[in-house]
């Protein structure tokens, strides 16, 4: 009962500034306004793509390629949005993706999968990812180790474990049903993209339309107030990291499907890509404010950028420079916009 009141209070606190800001235009208008900069950036990128690469960019196959590439890091970023909104950070996501991908593609797992059903691979990756997230969450919430350090440590540990299991070899997946399922398309849309869309939609509902989401905002905005209002802050924190771990497990499955391999080198620097996408999407690093739609735009912007650069034969190095500049400029613009309203 008290938890519900807390959630309602959190909800009111969350909404009141938005209502004040937007005035007559209403909640919906303000949400669109928040993402307007991102939409403009994405549109500009697409125009840039059409102008420089023409039909090679504005091609259905190419657009699907962008979405397929965005899907894996997108799923991780949606999970990351929850953790950052809840006032935390997770540096270990790339390592968890690597460990899950390796564990799910060992000869033993593949053997079981071939004898029973390919879903075993998915299940293994989800369990491994979820378990890693759970360990992170418990260390942070109950061990009270700073999130930055706890997940920095599990980054090292998970990558190390992935190397031990795989013996630093790339593990090729040879489970027919698995490949067939993930290579398929639903009404012309690749399964990977469908999964990303489902995760993003589910994440949006969870963050904006459920008690869990409200508690996430409350915990991130002011953990002490959330605790006094009756929210079990520690347990909620554990759930947030476990959720992100599950997202990493799912991302590992998608990565294994896309590359047909599991490897300890998978997911390199995903932590930085995911944090960048979440932050340029408008989620506050200090917690208490987060947006799934912004995160999705953030992921799409970075993926489109690298696609446009690749189509124009520009090197990965140039992409890195542009990406760095975009991160800083986007946050700068957001701050200016936020100050004006």
């Amino acid at each position: 009962m008290s938890e519900d009141t807390a959630a309602v209070a959190a909800q009111k606190r969350e909404r009141s500034p938005a209502v004040r800001q937007s005035g007559a235009s209403g909640l919906l208008g303000s949400a669109a306004g928040r993402n307007a900069g991102l939409v403009v950036a994405l549109v500009l990128l697409c125009i840039g793509g059409v102008v420089t690469a023409g039909d090679r960019f504005a091609d259905v196959d190419n657009l699907l390629t962008i979405l397929r590439l965005a899907a894996v890091i997108g799923v991780v970023s949606v999970g990351m949005t929850f953790v950052i909104t809840g006032g935390g950070i997770d540096l270990s996501v790339g390592a968890i993706v690597a460990l899950s991908s390796v564990w799910a593609t060992t000869l033993a797992t593949q053997g079981i999968a071939n004898n029973t059903h390919w879903i075993v691979i998915v299940f293994t990756a989800l369990v491994v990812g979820g378990a890693c997230g759970l360990v992170n969450g418990v260390l942070i919430a109950y061990g009270r180790v700073v999130a930055f350090i706890a997940t920095l440590a599990s980054l090292a540990a998970a990558r190390g474990l992935a190397e031990i299991i795989s013996n630093r070899k790339t593990q090729i997946v040879n489970v027919p049903g698995f490949a067939a399922f993930f290579d398929a398309s639903v009404l012309g849309v690749p399964v990977l993209v469908v999964i990303f869309a489902l995760v993003a939609a589910g994440g949006w509902v969870l963050l904006n339309r459920t008690t869990f989401g409200r508690r996430t905002f409350a915990v991130g905005g002011n953990p002490e107030a959330a605790r006094l209002a009756g929210i079990d802050v520690r347990r909620h924190t554990v759930w947030l990291y476990t959720l992100l771990g599950l997202c990493c497990g799912l991302a590992a499955v998608m990565l294994v499907a896309r590359t047909t391999t599991g490897s300890a080198t998978h997911g390199g620097l995903y932590e930085l890509d995911a944090i960048a996408a979440v932050v340029i999407g408008g989620t506050l690093l200090t917690g208490g404010r987060g947006t799934i739609a912004g995160t999705v735009f953030g992921v799409l912007i970075f993926t489109t950028l690298s696609n446009v650069f690749t189509l124009n034969n520009l090197s990965i190095s140039a992409q890195a420079v542009a990406k760095g500049a975009i991160i800083v400029v986007a946050v700068l613009l957001q701050q200016r916009l936020a100050r004006r309203t």
Partner: peptide, 11 residues
Amino acid sequence: LGSFGAAQGAA
């Protein structure tokens, strides 16, 4: 994070 990517890319 931005200059992490930018400096590496520039190098």
